[in-house]
Design a protein around this nucleic acid. Structure first.
Length: 299
DNA sequence: CTAGGGGTAAAT
DNA sequence: ATTTACCCCTAG
């Protein structure tokens, strides 16, 4: 009667996810009180947050019916409250990155029908895997890569176009090297630590903008928002983080795909990056002009 | 306060 | 007609 229905928008969803990453799932009230998210979520109650998070979780797990699903042991192994300790990250903990959520494990006989509903797999990884497994000394061409992925996994409707855009993007960002229509994996330093910094934006080479807005003033930039989520996620290690990562990455992927598609040659993406750079420069200039304190640009 | 169950309007 | 997703209720 009173409230018809209030759909969640992307901003609220992002705030929720960021909040979960920051405070951990289950700390709904804490998230709600966080001044960073309160502005966006002021319409929502703690229960609303919980429900929404449940919906998102069900989605990512691909559980068709929400009737009776096994209680997945979701433990709260989250990051410490507010830690600013500049201690180096010791690897002594039992932290284990389990960020990869590839549905290829459906190998064993049985249901093919219950294949992954949504594509949560990173196309980046698939491409890398394809190139590696194809073991072509001179690199693999687009057709071979596409064929491999289509065989090993499944292909979305507009897969070919997406693949081409992604290949171009990866080449531009230096993750791949293109030689005569063939793609090879770039000599990435320390491949041991899986892909750490996801290729979200086409920041060529050393250009890196990492705006730090302590006390936000409502100027949440579309891109920095996603970047923020990923950045926070790096400090978190748990299966929940994996789920959150999968979602955030999927969204980022979609955003990139859209941007790249809209721009016939990904020029728009670059323009966007430059716009962001310009914004960062302007902001920095303002700060420096006012008060030339030592500004430490985070790595 | 949070987790889970359940109802139901809206979407497909 | 079935699924999705928002909201409410209540036990712990």
């Amino acid at each position: 009667m009173g409230a018809p229905k209030q759909k969640w928008n992307a901003e609220e969803e992002a705030a929720l996810k960021a909040g979960v990453v920051k405070h951990g799932a289950g700390k709904w009230r804490t998230i709600l009180k966080d001044p960073e998210f309160a502005r966006i979520l002021y319409l929502r109650s703690n229960v609303d947050l919980k429900d929404k998070w449940r919906n998102l979780s069900v989605l990512v797990n691909g559980w068709g019916s929400r009737d009776k699903y096994r209680t997945v042991t979701r433990r709260l192994a989250q990051v410490p409250k507010q830690e600013d300790s500049s201690m180096a990250l010791s690897a002594g903990q039992s932290d284990e990155d389990a960020m990869d959520a590839k549905p290829m494990a459906a190998s064993s006989d049985s249901q093919q029908v219950s294949a992954p509903k949504r594509s949560i797999v990173r196309l980046d990884d698939l491409i890398m895997e394809a190139i590696v497994n194809l073991k072509d000394s001179d690199g693999s061409n687009k057709t071979a890569i596409g064929a491999y992925i289509e065989e090993q996994y499944w292909a979305p409707p507009d897969f070919r176009r997406l693949l081409l855009a992604k290949l171009k993007f990866l080449t531009a960002s230096g993750k791949l090297i293109k030689v005569k229509r063939r793609y090879r994996i770039a000599p990435t330093p320390t491949f041991s630590e899986k892909r750490r910094y996801s290729s979200v934006f086409p920041f060529e080479g050393r250009r890196r903008v990492s705006p730090r807005f302590d006390k936000d003033d409502g100027t949440m930039l579309m891109r920095t928002q996603i970047d923020l989520e990923l950045a926070k996620m790096r400090t978190m290690t748990s299966q929940e983080a994996a789920a959150a990562a999968a979602r955030a990455v999927a969204e980022a992927e979609a955003a990139i795909a859209e941007a790249e598609e809209a721009a016939r040659e990904a020029e728009a993406a670059e323009a966007d990056a430059e716009a962001a750079q310009a914004f960062a420069d302007a902001a920095m200039r303002t700060l420096k002009g006012r008060n030339h304190a030592k500004m430490v640009i985070s790595a």
